[in-house]
Computed example of a mutant assay.
Amino acid sequence: MKDRYRILILLVIFIIMVYQLQRRGKEEYQKDSLLLKNNFKMEGIVDSFYVSNNHCFAVIYLNVFQSNVKYFNPKKENNYFPYAINDGKAEIYTQVCASQIDVGDSVLIDSNYRTVYFKTKSIGNHQGEINFVQGDIGYIKEKSKLFPENFIKK
């Protein structure tokens, strides 16, 4: 009988923990969404890119692009935005695999919708979500041409 109560209590504790984690994750997502809604838009052609072995994370370089912003430093306080612009060049930091993108493909970012659209020759059009950069800071520091000094591992 004691074991039944222990199992039941452990199950209830586990359910409460999962609920709390989900709630905190949702709150964090909503907070990030508010910060990312900064009216940033950019459209350009992929000049080159590097894809890491860590869940298809990429640093994408754009030399030909249009944006409603001329300069954007990705580091804002403790957050790293998924895009940067400096000296007529742009970078995007996002989840995309090497087989999903190629040089010459078009990329469109709309921060208000947290989306990145890829218009590709090889697999057609597809869409991804932009998020603050977190786990791939070291990779961006290695590959960034615009702001490598900003990306310091925490």
Rank of each mutant, 00 (worst) to 15 (best):
M1C: 08
I7R: 15
L10A: 13
V12H: 02
M17Q: 13
M17R: 12
L21A: 03
L21W: 02
L21Q: 08
Q22A: 04
G25L: 05
K26Q: 14
E28Q: 14
Y29N: 03
K31R: 11
D32N: 15
L34W: 04
L35A: 09
N39Y: 03
N39I: 05
K41M: 07
G44T: 01
I45V: 11
D47V: 09
V51K: 07
S52A: 07
C56K: 06
A58K: 01
A58L: 10
A58E: 09
V59E: 03
S67M: 04
S67W: 06
N68I: 09
N73F: 02
P74C: 11
E77A: 11
N78S: 09
N79H: 14
F81K: 01
Y83C: 07
N86S: 15
D87C: 00
D87H: 06
G88Y: 09
K89N: 11
K89D: 04
K89C: 00
K89E: 07
A90I: 01
A90K: 03
E91I: 06
E91N: 05
Y93P: 05
C97N: 14
A98D: 10
A98V: 12
A98G: 06
Q100L: 07
I101K: 14
V103N: 04
G104V: 00
V107Y: 00
Y117S: 01
F118D: 05
F118H: 08
K121L: 13
I123R: 12
Q127Y: 04
E129R: 14
E129I: 15
I130V: 09
F132K: 08
Y139V: 00
I140H: 06
K141C: 09
E142W: 11
K145P: 00
L146A: 11
L146I: 09
F147Y: 15
P148A: 04
E149L: 06
